[in-house]
Amino acid sequence: MSLRDNIAAHTRGILADLESAHDYFENSKTAWRIVQQYVDDGGKLKVDNATTGSVTTELELPGKAQLYVRQYLASSTFQQFVSLFEDFLFGVMRLWLLAYPQSLGRKQISVSVVLEASDLDAVKLAAVNRELNELNYKKVREWFTYLNGLVNLECPTAEEIDRLAEIKATRDVTVHNRGIASPTYEEKAGPLGRAKAGERLEIPEQYHRDAWQLIRKVVQDISTAAIAKAGTS
């Protein structure tokens, strides 16, 4: 498959997963809303959790459902959106580097990698993976600097990169700091920071939706630009 075809296939997979993730969010929310309506209409229920020993009835479940919808569900799907974005971006860079490995010409790899490789492609893949693993630990803004060093795509915009940096910083706080903003969050999020260190970082529905829409747009923009440039660089 050509580089263009590979990027297009990679993009289709990511966009499909993004839509599935958002459908999962809305459909799961719908299920909880139906439960809340059922109780609001006078319905009774009792749930025994044999593992924890907890018992939930119609008295507690509507409130718990609200917590699940507004916090747990929003948080888990938001993390999924960001993971898909990373998968997309690093996937494109991997495909590009494998097609045009010259930019890694001055990089060093250990002899053991060469000795263990079955062929030259395996050496290339090891070099590319190492390069991208190192990049993955850097800041979002550096990811795009790197990408545009490989091929100037003229996207995303500076404003979009700032928003993506804040989104990634929110994801990191959610995963590593139980949703409480830290000084690291403030530094990564920059001027678009939504909380001070020590404050709870919420994922309101509007923010959740905006993040999904931005990620989808940037995926489409990068893909379109990269496909247009593939074969011309």
Binding site: E60, P62, G63, Q66, L67, R70
Partner: peptide, 14 residues
């Protein structure tokens, strides 16, 4: 229209 008062995640109205 009633405001649900249950839980820590904020109230809601159906």
């Amino acid at each position: 229209l009633t405001v649900s008062e249950r839980g820590p995640a904020g109230s809601y109205i159906i």
